[in-house]
């Protein structure tokens, strides 16, 4: 099915919607490897605060990223998190988010530039904003999100 969409829709891309702090984000479906429920995470001392730890995903070690922290939002209490696993530079990262929504098909043209007033922390990881019927969808730039953390921890 994935192959289908890439072949047919050159202008349209499919995005998985995720929610962090009541804000909807879109991540290109093709970047996503897995969607996980809350997992047992091993803390990594001394790592950047955004690094929640590492976990075992079917024998591969995955670095878990606390997206809330990266966006500078207060941590949630009590609620169960979910995460989406992405591959970047041959390594797996699990982005801990609040919940996962549905898959949307968006045309390139629907995505608008970031509003200039967007907070720097958000602007860094946003590839643009898309107007949905009743809300706005921020296109998440996953490589940049991860890169910014790599840089931070050094």
């Amino acid at each position: 099915m994935k192959a289908d969409t890439t072949l047919n829709a050159s202008a349209a891309r499919e995005y998985l919607t995720i929610v962090v702090d009541d804000q909807k984000f879109g991540i290109p479906v093709l970047q996503i490897q897995d969607v996980l429920r809350e997992q047992k995470v091993t803390r990594i001392p001394l790592a950047s605060p955004e690094v929640a730890g590492s976990l075992n995903l079917r024998g591969r070690i995955v670095t878990a990223i606390d997206v809330r922290r990266r966006l500078g939002v207060q941590p949630r209490k009590g609620a169960r998190n979910m995460s989406v696993v992405v591959e970047y530079n041959q390594e797996l990262y699990s982005l801990i988010i609040d919940r996962v929504g549905d898959v949307l098909k968006l045309d390139e043209g629907q995505v608008e530039k970031n509003p200039g007033t967007l907070e720097a922390k958000w602007r860094d990881i946003s590839n643009g904003v898309c107007q949905l019927e009743d809300e706005l969808l921020v296109i998440m730039d996953v490589p940049r999100l991860l890169d910014s953390i790599v840089a931070h921890s050094k």
């Binding site: 790592a47 590492s54 390594e91 990262y93 991860l146 953390i149 790599v150």
Partner: peptide
């Protein structure tokens, strides 16, 4: 992970 390579206290996981 590359993200953690700056941590000299760890040699791997």
């Amino acid at each position: 992970s590359k993200m953690l390579q700056g941590l000299s206290l760890f040699s791997g996981n």
